[in-house]
Design a binder for these strands. Structure first.
Lengths: 139, 139
DNA sequence: GTGTTTGCAAAGTGTTTGCAATTTA
DNA sequence: TAAATTGCAAACACTTTGCAAACAC
C-alpha cells in the first residue's frame, strides 16, 4: 500500500531509473519534481540549485538533465537556437512559446486536436508530434 | 505586364527586399530560389556554394541567411539543438523531421489540420504555429 | 566619393568531455 | 574497495562581431 504512488518522491524516481541517489541528483530531482510541472534550462536549474544552497556544478546539471531525459523522467524541447529546455511533463502535450520572454507554457493534449496527419514513409515511424504555438506580445 | 511575376529571379528578389545585389547575395539567392523549395543550414549552403565555385565566406552565408529571413524571403526553423535550418518555403506549412538523418521535409498546410487551438493570453498574439512530426527509422 | 558589404580572425554562447578526486554501495 | 559520479578546465560546435579592404551606386 505504501508504494501505490510509485514516483512520489525523488528517491523513488532515481531508484526506478537505475540512477544512484547521489546528493546532487537527489537535490535536483527534488527541485524538479516536487511541485508542478516545470520547464527548465540547464542554466536556470543551476541557478536555482545554487540559490537553494545545493552545491552542484553546471556540468553535472547538464549530465543529470540528460540522464533524467534518457531515463524517461523528462523530455527535451528545442524551440529556438541557443538553448534546450527540459520539461518535467512527459505526457503527450504541446506548448505555447512566448518569443519575447523565451518562456514555455504547456498546452494540454486535449486543448489541441491534430487531425489528418499524413502517413510517414513506410520505413519510418512517428516518435513524437510537437505543436509549438509561437506568441508575440501585442504591440 | 513584365512585372506580373514579382519574384521570378534572384535579382528581383533582392531588389524587392532592399538588399544590394552583390555577387555573393546573387549567387546564394540563385542557389536557394532557382528550383524547388529547400531546407539548408549555413554549413550546407556554404559547402554548396563552394562546390559551385562561388567564393563566399561562412560568415557571409550566415549574414545573408538572416537578411533573407528578416526580409521575409525565408523562414528559420529550429528542431534540434546545434543548428538552425532555413526554409525557402515561406507559406504556412509543417514538417517531418527525420531524427536519424537530421533531414527536414515539408508537410503541406492541407495535409495537417490543427483544430481547436486554445486562445492565447489576451496580451499576446499567435505569430506562427509549428507542427513537427518527428520520425525514427523503423528498427 | 560615400555608404554598404565582405572576409577574416577573434570572441561569444551553450554544451560536452577527459580525468583526477570524491562518493556510493 | 570497486565502480560510479562529480567538478574543473579544456575542448567543442555553431554563430556573431569588429574592423580593414573591396565593392556598389
Amino acid at each position: 500500500m505504501e508504494n501505490s504512488r510509485p514516483f512520489t518522491d525523488a528517491l523513488g524516481r532515481l531508484r526506478s531509473a537505475g540512477l544512484r541517489p547521489t546528493r546532487q541528483r537527489l537535490a535536483l530531482a527534488k527541485l524538479l519534481f516536487d511541485g508542478e510541472n516545470r520547464h527548465v534550462t540547464a542554466e536556470s536549474l543551476h541557478r536555482e540549485a545554487l540559490k537553494a544552497r545545493v552545491r552542484v556544478s553546471l556540468a553535472t546539471v547538464y549530465n543529470t538533465l540528460h540522464q533524467f531525459t534518457d531515463a524517461g523522467l523528462m523530455r527535451e524541447i528545442v524551440v529556438d537556437a541557443g538553448g534546450s529546455y527540459f520539461d518535467t511533463n512527459i505526457s503527450d502535450h504541446h506548448h505555447f512559446y512566448f518569443e519575447d520572454t523565451r518562456r514555455l507554457e504547456d498546452i494540454a493534449e486535449e486543448e489541441i486536436r491534430v487531425a489528418k496527419l499524413p502517413a510517414p514513409p513506410a520505413d519510418a515511424e512517428v516518435s513524437r508530434v510537437d505543436v509549438i504555438v509561437r506568441l508575440q506580445a501585442k504591440k
